[in-house]
Design a protein around this nucleic acid. Structure first.
Lengths: 359, 359
DNA sequence: TGGTCATTTGGAACCGATTCCAGGAGGGAG
DNA sequence: CTCCCTCCTGGAATCGGTTCCAAATGACCA
């Protein structure tokens, strides 16, 4: 049905070796022969079979991207960066989405087994020592993004510094009672970044002799529902914080929702700062700590390509910069004066029920 | 280095054919032989080479997902649904993100060429007649999502009906001057759904003898910036609409941003309704027309798996239901009192004589 | 005991490329 | 004119599976 290299060889009156050399741009092919082969290739609309090529060459030109929770916006932006770079280099990219710890273990094992891919990018997926040994034994090039292993190439942001940035911003606005909403402290799956960001916040506060009050600290589920629940609990307190730092933007949205529901105006009654600077943060005008999501994926892909070519230079650990992005959900704390209606008051739609205060 | 089927055969003292039969769960293998082979497989930690398997069997167990703009949330949710279904069925999924018309053409051509995949799902990517002929000639199973071709299996939502739903909701709240913000009318790439949704809106309005005023209609870029620009233009008008329907949630976010900037309170001064019901719409409490994004991806994947098994039943065109999801950005128009504040200060009270009527 | 048939088994052929080696053609030097 | 070296070229071997065919085995029956 579909033309093969043998068909091309026969019609061009040459051997398959010659066709292969033409296909791969190798030297040692006569000009007229090359022209004849190319003509037949065009005529037959011939494209080499990728599978056969992989089998004989031992390279699949395919990269696995293993990620947790494909639906998380920050993960998607990282994949997007990797996708562009890999596609431009002629590589295919296969997605391995893992949503449970078992799936993660299985995905990491499978990476090396069926020799299906030339390399892998792990996004927010941290290999354990056993995984590492498997990968190393198989000689599979792997680059981590937003994950860590002391012996593997990785691109990370300084989460402690980013957390401190958020803390210093709130402090500079005059906040003293600052709450924190984060991921579960020991997630079965995924990233310790939430804890690092909390640590950064605390370091910033400590410089002023302050700390996060235990009852102003909630570490629940990763998703918005978690941020919402956590924030509700904290914001219902009599001595609720005047500002909340959420370990990522998705959680921060949950905080905003809780504030809206409790009739707290943002930023007048409550400042909220997130982390990641996903697209949606810009949409709703949320202050956040920006980290280079797209770029981290692109950089990891570029590094992986270099590893595949055996050009393994550069440090194992690359720290990418974070920066504060101030929008409309942070402001000085509301001291004393009665709430005033503000046109910019809430990034979220103004609900008619937001007159009554908490309790 | 890595064990092959020949190693297993030798250690088990059987032929490669027998090992293959065991691997694939074929009958006609003696119980004791099977046990011995399985023992060796376990001992060697043997996994069959996926590439070799593909080459000899002619099936790659890989599906291509071709999508426009990998970064669009609705696209991602659809991919997520497809990913789960395909992974559970043991298929790998490769992503082909196309962001220009040329890339789209190339991606569609490549699908059939290198025999790299067993089938494809096209998300918001519409094949032209030539693409269709290529695909048909190659016998490649393909399912469309949010795209149309009269001869291909597809899952769509009734965009006209969805648009009408949005229109009727606004009408029932009492709105008479309704604006529309949509995608460019003739996108080089992508979907005509924006136009269909506008048509639905007009049909709903026509039932009341109304229409969208030409200067209340803006079709700009797909992304938020487009929605923002379009909305700014419309909302600065003296006779600005009391409600805006945006062809998708991303555009609607741009409308919200423009409203915020102009000092228009939502929903008091302006109602906004989107389309898609992406996660972020829930985050900010936006009223929207819900369509089953995840489910459409999952359904398409399930259908594709059936096509691969030769069980091609069911209609070519499957229409999935939409439904109105009312949140906090729509309300009756503000008739009595003047707006609290307005950037341009015109703040003309809504006068019912102002309705734009169908000629 | 011999014949028939179903089941089990080994291994060659094949999938479609790449790669390597040997042989042929052509050009330059002696 | 011969020899040698370089450059082209054809085709067999190879990658690691699946599949098919023929042969071996064993059960059953006359």
């Amino acid at each position: 049905m579909v033309a093969t290299i043998a068909d091309v060889a026969r019609l061009a009156g040459v051997g398959v070796g010659t066709v292969s050399r033409v296909l791969n741009g190798r030297p040692n092919v006569g000009a007229s022969t090359r022209a004849r082969v190319l003509a037949v290739i065009t005529e037959l609309d011939y494209v080499p079979n990728a599978t056969a090529r992989s089998l004989s060459s031992g390279r699949t030109r395919t990269i696995a991207v293993v990620c947790i929770h494909f639906i998380i916006p920050s993960v998607i932006e990282r994949i997007h960066g990797a996708e562009r770079t890999l596609t431009d280099a002629g590589f295919d990219l296969i997605i391995r989405n893992v949503e449970t710890a078992e799936r993660r273990d299985q995905a990491l094992r499978d990476l090396t087994h069926a020799e299906r891919v030339d390399g892998a990018i792990l996004i927010s997926v941290t290999p354990n020592e056993q995984d590492y040994q498997h990968i190393r034994a198989a000689g599979l090039p792997v680059v981590l993004v937003d994950a860590s292993h002391r012996s593997m190439a990785r691109f990370v942001c300084d989460d402690v510094e980013g957390g401190a940035t958020a803390g210093r911003h709130l402090l500079s606005l005059g906040h003293r009672r600052i709450g924190f909403v984060g991921d579960p402290p020991r997630p079965s799956l995924g990233v310790p970044s939430s804890r690092s960001r909390l640590r950064g916040l605390r370091e910033a506060l400590a410089e002023q002799g302050l700390d996060v009050a235990p009852h102003h600290l909630a570490e629940g589920e990763h998703f918005r529902a978690g941020g919402y629940e956590s924030a509700l609990r904290i914001l219902k307190l009599k001595d609720r914080p005047t500002a909340v730092f959420a370990a990522n933007d998705t959680l921060a949205f949950g905080v905003l929702q809780a504030a809206r529901e409790l009739g707290l105006r943002v930023p007048t009654d409550l400042s909220v700062i997130g982390y990641d600077d996903i697209d949606a943060a810009d949409l709703v005008g949320m202050t956040t700590v920006h980290q280079p999501l797209y770029d981290s994926g692109a950089a990891a892909a570029a590094r992986l390509l270099r590893l595949l070519n055996g050009q393994d230079h550069g440090p194992l650990r690359t720290v990418m910069p974070t920066r504060l992005t101030v929008r409309e959900t942070t402001a000085p704390p509301n001291t004393g004066t009665a709430p005033v209606k503000s046109i910019h008051g809430s990034s979220a739609p103004v609900s008619s029920s937001n007159h009554h205060r908490v309790r």
